[in-house]
Lab assay of single mutants.
Amino acid sequence: KELVLVLYDYQEKSPREVTVKKGDILTLLNSTNKDAWKVEVDDRQGFIPAAYLKKL
């Protein structure tokens, strides 16, 4: 599985998104959309803007 590093805090703005903190390391589920990547956070799945993430 692929991991990503969170570069900036992000507060979810819709039910399809998830809230993350800078420095979190998350499982990347889908990065086919260049604008928003799907990740898993504490058994929740949701989207975060790709600009907030860096592949490890």
Results as ranks from 00 to 15, higher is better:
Glu40Trp: 08
Ala51Ser: 14
Ala51Pro: 08
Gly23Lys: 01
Val18Asn: 03
Asp35Ser: 10
Asn33Thr: 08
Thr19Ile: 05
Pro49Thr: 04
Arg44Met: 07
Lys34Leu: 11
Leu5Ile: 14
Asn30His: 07
Lys55Ser: 07
Thr27Gly: 07
Thr32Glu: 14
Leu5Trp: 05
Arg16Pro: 06
Leu56Val: 10
Asp43Gly: 15
Asn33Met: 09
Thr32Ala: 13
Ser14Trp: 09
Asn30Phe: 05
Phe47Lys: 02
Asn33Leu: 09
Leu28Pro: 00
Val39Asn: 00
Arg44Pro: 01
Thr27Met: 10
Asp42Thr: 07
Val6Gln: 00
Leu53His: 02
Ala36Cys: 15
Leu3Val: 07
Lys13Tyr: 05
Leu53Ser: 00
Asp42Ala: 13
Thr27Ser: 08
Tyr8Asp: 11
Ala50Asp: 05
Asp24Trp: 14
Tyr52Glu: 04
Leu5Asn: 00
Tyr52Gln: 05
Lys54His: 12
Leu28Asn: 01
Arg44Ala: 05
Val20Phe: 06
Gln11Met: 13
Trp37Tyr: 06
Lys38Tyr: 15
Val4Gly: 03
Glu40Leu: 14
Ser14Ala: 09
Leu28His: 01
Val4Glu: 01
Pro15Ile: 09
Leu7Thr: 03
Glu17Lys: 05
Asp24His: 06
Asn33Tyr: 10
Val18Arg: 02
Val20Glu: 02
Gln11Ala: 13
Leu26Lys: 01
Leu56Cys: 14
Glu2Val: 13
Trp37Pro: 00
Glu12Pro: 13
Lys1Leu: 12
Lys1Gln: 10
Lys21Cys: 11
Glu17Leu: 05
Thr27Asn: 08
Arg16Gly: 15
Gly23Ser: 02
Phe47Ala: 03
Leu7Lys: 04
Gly23Arg: 02
Glu17Met: 06
Gly46Asn: 03
Tyr10Ile: 02
Lys54Met: 12
Gly46His: 12
Ala50Pro: 14
Leu53Pro: 04
Leu7Ile: 09
Thr27Val: 15
Ile25Met: 05
Ile48Pro: 03
Glu17Gly: 15
Leu28Tyr: 00
Glu17Phe: 08
Thr19Leu: 04
Tyr52His: 12
Ser31Phe: 06
Val20Met: 02
Leu5Asp: 01
Pro15Ala: 12
Thr32Ser: 14
Glu12Cys: 14
Leu56Thr: 05
Gly46Ile: 15
Ser14Val: 06
Asn33Lys: 07
Ile25Leu: 06
Ala50Val: 11
Leu29Val: 11
Asp42Pro: 06
Leu53Phe: 01
Lys1Asp: 07
Leu3Cys: 14
Asp24Thr: 09
Lys13Pro: 06
Asn30Lys: 06
Val18Gly: 02
Asn33Ala: 10
Leu28Val: 06
Asp24Ser: 10
Ser31Pro: 04
Tyr10Gln: 01
Thr32Phe: 10
Glu40Val: 11
Lys13Gly: 08
Gln11Phe: 15
Gly46Arg: 05
Ala50Thr: 09
Ala36Glu: 15
Ala51Trp: 14
Leu5Cys: 13
Ala36Gly: 09
Val4Ile: 04
Lys54Arg: 11
Ile48Gly: 02
Lys54Phe: 09
Asp35Trp: 15
Val6Ser: 01
Ile25Thr: 04
Val41Trp: 08
Lys54Cys: 15
Leu28Thr: 01
Leu29Cys: 05
Ala36Pro: 03
Leu5Phe: 07
Val6Arg: 00
Phe47Gly: 02
Thr32Arg: 10
Ala50Ile: 08
Ala51Glu: 14
Arg16Ala: 14
Lys38Pro: 00
Ile48Asp: 04
Val4Phe: 02
Tyr52Val: 13
Val20Leu: 04
Gln45Asn: 07
Arg16Trp: 15
Leu7Glu: 02
Tyr52Trp: 07
Tyr10Phe: 07
Lys34Tyr: 10
Gln11Gly: 07
Leu26Gly: 05
Pro15Tyr: 07
Asp43Ile: 06
Leu56Ile: 14
Gly23Phe: 03
Lys34Gly: 10
Leu5Arg: 06
Phe47Ile: 06
Gln45Phe: 09
Glu2Gly: 11
Leu3Gly: 02
Glu2Gln: 14
Asp43Glu: 11
Ser14Pro: 07
Leu5Lys: 05
Leu26Asp: 00
Tyr8Thr: 08
Gly23Trp: 04
Val4Trp: 04
Arg44Glu: 05
Tyr8Ile: 09
Leu28Glu: 01
Asp9Lys: 01
Glu17Gln: 08
Lys34Asp: 13
Leu26Gln: 00
Tyr8Ser: 10
Lys1Asn: 10
Arg44Asn: 05
Gln45Ala: 11
Thr19Asp: 04
Val6Gly: 00
Val20Ser: 03
Ile25Ser: 00
Gln11Pro: 05
Lys55Glu: 07
Lys13Ile: 08
Asp42Lys: 12
Leu26Ile: 13
Glu2Ile: 14
Thr32Met: 12
Gly23Tyr: 03
Lys38Gly: 04
Ser14Phe: 10
Asp9Trp: 04
Asp42Trp: 08
Leu29His: 03
Val41Cys: 08
Asp9Phe: 03
